[in-house]
């Protein structure tokens, strides 16, 4: 039996991420925005090893499509449409329905932001939209604040994951409130995906060390000086953070503790 066949026969391992019954071997979910061109995007996606990647929905360009779907199809990367740009539950629900119609998937990354300079989630509209989309049969992955109670409410209405921000979208500030993320992880019965704010590899590793099940990022890779190399770094960081969490870190101590035997 080949390794692949053995793996299939054994089903998903505990090392895999499972969201709504779908097994993902990579815990790095990518976005596609911000790349200088499609060739760079394609190379970066490949280097990241991602299996699930977001796209946005916009008015069709009569001159021709963006080609982003072709890139994803070519590499068997699943598409996760988002509702970026929506400010109300009504807008987000319609955008999700259009995405389902256009892309033949009922998975949706739900974004309902309050304004265009913070891009922070509008908690009231977000929860309302999540409820409506779950009722309409969608598999909902909401981009949310790092508020543990809102995360709980989103899970309660039937979201299959919660995606708290580390920091505002595109800010590269990393994980601003590690304790809040840890509280979300401690309370969640669905996968927790740190979404937004990641600036560099150590941010992604920290999110995973805090117990997040996956990291979703775009800008940190697509706007890096060398997107392919940063994609490789992020993949390594997510894996390192995952293993470190599983391994169980040592407690922090105020004083030193010798690791060599005492001299006699």
């Amino acid at each position: 039996m080949t390794d692949t066949v053995a793996a299939v026969a054994a089903g998903p391992s505990t090392e895999d991420l499972v969201i709504a019954g779908r097994t993902l071997h990579s815990r790095l979910i990518m976005g596609t925005g911000g790349a200088p061109n499609q060739a760079v995007l394609e190379a970066a996606l490949l280097a990241s090893g991602t299996e699930l990647t977001t796209v946005a929905m916009r008015r069709v360009d009569p001159a021709g499509g963006s080609g982003v779907l072709e890139v994803l199809r070519r590499h068997a990367i699943s598409v996760l449409p988002n509702t970026a740009g929506c400010h109300t539950a009504a807008e987000a629900v319609l955008t999700a329905q259009l995405a389902r119609e256009a892309l033949h998937t009922d998975w949706i990354k739900l974004e309902v932001v309050a304004d265009d300079h913070t891009l922070l989630p509008d908690a009231v509209e977000l929860l309302r939209a999540a409820q409506r989309l779950v009722d309409d049969g969608f598999v909902v992955l909401p981009y949310t604040t790092d508020d543990p109670i809102l995360a709980r409410r989103l899970e309660d209405v039937g979201c299959v994951a919660v995606m708290p921000l580390g920091a505002p979208i595109g800010s590269g500030l990393g994980v601003s409130n590690p304790h809040a993320l840890e509280m979300i992880v401690a309370g969640a019965g669905v996968p927790v995906i740190c979404d937004a704010g990641i600036g560099t590899a150590s941010d992604a590793a920290l999110a995973m060390e805090l117990g997040c099940d996956a990291v979703l990022l775009a800008t940190a890779v697509t706007r890096a000086d060398d997107p392919v190399r940063m994609a490789q770094a992020m993949a390594a960081a997510v894996e390192a953070g995952f293993h470190a969490r599983r391994a169980g870190r040592i407690p922090k101590r105020f004083w030193a503790q010798a690791s060599s035997p005492a001299r006699c």
Binding site: T32, A35, R59, V60, S66, A102, A218
Partner: peptide, 10 residues
């Protein structure tokens, strides 16, 4: 009428 398609984003 609105006609939408997928573009890079997120």
């Amino acid at each position: 009428v609105e006609v939408l398609s997928a573009v890079p984003g997120g």
